[in-house]
């Protein structure tokens, strides 16, 4: 992981903590929905926090193909990089 990706990953972990009510230890390979046992609405609410922090939109269609934190790092970087 590049240092940029690592800092993105760290921010995602921070934003995910309030939704991680079971206190699962987060890894880049953690599946956001199934490993954390959180429902689909909570996943969308978490992503809304991510959108606000990075000032990007992550359409729900993209989200349906995003499983792990690593996947989400890639999505955030691709979408945040677009405007630069």
């Amino acid at each position: 992981m590049s240092s940029d990706s690592q800092s993105t990953y760290a921010v995602l972990c921070e934003l995910l903590q309030p939704f991680n009510t079971a206190g699962v230890s987060l890894q880049p390979t953690t599946d956001i929905s199934t490993d954390l046992n959180i429902d689909s609405v909570s996943v969308m609410d978490f992503v809304m926090e991510v959108e606000d922090r990075f000032d990007i939109d992550i359409p729900l269609n993209v989200l349906s193909e995003t499983r792990t934190l690593n996947d989400l790092v890639s999505v955030v970087e691709a979408r945040a990089g677009k405007g630069k």
């Binding site: 969308m44 809304m48 990007i56 939109d57 359409p59 729900l60 269609n61 405007g83």
Partner: peptide, 19 residues
Amino acid sequence: KLVRFRHNDASDLDKRLAR
């Protein structure tokens, strides 16, 4: 393409439409 905005928040929709 589906973009979800914050409930009853017109300014959030405004922001998303702008970007």
